[in-house]
């Protein structure tokens, strides 16, 4: 029994590391966007389109990292579109986000039809297997470099929000647009830049999906991870470091179903696969209250106003 437990624990650890990366990238991107005062719900579409473009470009160029870059650039274009439309008067960022979510997925399915069959070169993991002799852990310690890039990015973003002019201006714009305007800061420009960077990160998150895990391109690839990442930002209270913890938690939850199956518990497989979705719901309910306003929420967000 303890063997089975170990297996499940190791599988969940491996899963946490493997599955968390797209969550991490999307939620970091969304954190930056929301810190500037806008919500981009379109990141689900950006994620799917990023996955498709990464796979296609990797296949065509033969270099998966070129694919990652292409996914990021494609994501930026989606971010720019969001930033551009939202600066028009009387435009709701939520509505534009939903439109872009559907548009991004649809466009990805349209262009991606031809890339479902071929096999593109995938990203290589870094092997930390030499650290242990345990064969299960050896497999679990195959870690993709994008995971480390994500970790570093979280730390850099956390530092930059407090210690750079850019960070202060983003926070100011997100908390009090009137103040930013009074200081001569272009609110629309700051939000445009923040949304563009957010789109870039979401695109990279998509590249991880198609080029590493699960590691192929098909239309059901994301299954709502982009949307869950937006919920995760609220759970992390707009703190990049908390995004890491939340992404790992969601990753581990996502690995629960396969981990239990690997030790022979296949009953309720689909139920356990739904764990991240249930967790999203549970966390949102537990962390909100009818009496309090959300702690740490940027004051300009359309959902908290």
């Amino acid at each position: 029994m303890s063997d089975a437990l170990t297996t499940v624990a190791v599988a969940m650890f491996a899963g946490a590391v493997r599955v968390s990366t797209p969550f991490l990238f999307v939620s970091l991107g969304e954190t930056l966007t929301e810190k500037s005062g806008r919500i981009n719900l379109g990141l689900e579409g950006t994620l799917v389109f990023g996955a498709m473009s990464a796979y296609a470009v990797s296949y065509l160029s033969g270099n998966p990292w070129v694919g990652v870059l292409a996914a990021g650039l494609a994501g930026s274009v989606f971010g720019m579109a969001h930033g551009f439309f939202c600066r028009l008067p009387k435009v709701s960022d939520i509505a534009i986000g939903i439109a872009l979510m559907l548009f991004g997925s649809g466009l990805a399915f349209f262009f991606g039809k031809g890339f479902i069959q071929p096999t593109a070169p995938r990203l290589q993991a870094i092997d930390f297997g030499f650290l242990t002799s345990d064969p299960q852990l050896k497999v679990a310690l195959q870690i993709n470099p994008l995971f480390f890039i994500g970790l570093a990015l979280a730390v850099v973003m956390w530092w930059a929000l407090a210690n750079t002019r850019f960070g202060l201006i983003v926070r100011m714009t997100g908390d009090s647009a009137a103040t930013a305007k009074a200081m001569g800061v272009s609110v629309d420009l700051v939000r445009f830049v923040a949304t563009t960077i957010g789109g870039f990160l979401a695109g990279v998150g998509g590249a991880f999906l198609s080029l590493y895990y699960p590691g192929s391109w098909n239309e059901g690839l994301s299954s709502g991870q982009g949307l869950m990442a937006v919920a995760l930002v609220i759970f992390s209270r707009w703190n990049p470091l908390m995004c890491v913890a939340a992404a790992l938690l969601f990753g581990a939850a996502g690995a629960l179903g396969p981990a239990l199956q690997s030790v022979g518990i296949s009953q309720g497989y689909h139920f356990f696969n739904a764990a991240p979705h249930i967790l999203t719901l549970a966390i949102l309910i537990a962390s909100s209250s009818s009496k309090r306003s959300l702690e740490g929420a940027p004051g300009e967000l359309s959902i908290t106003k």
Partner: peptide, 17 residues
């Protein structure tokens, strides 16, 4: 109406201005 950014500290508000 105050034109200070609520979530920023006094020092951050002064420096960013």
């Amino acid at each position: 109406h105050f034109t200070l950014v609520p979530s920023l500290t006094a020092a951050e508000n002064l420096v960013v201005s």
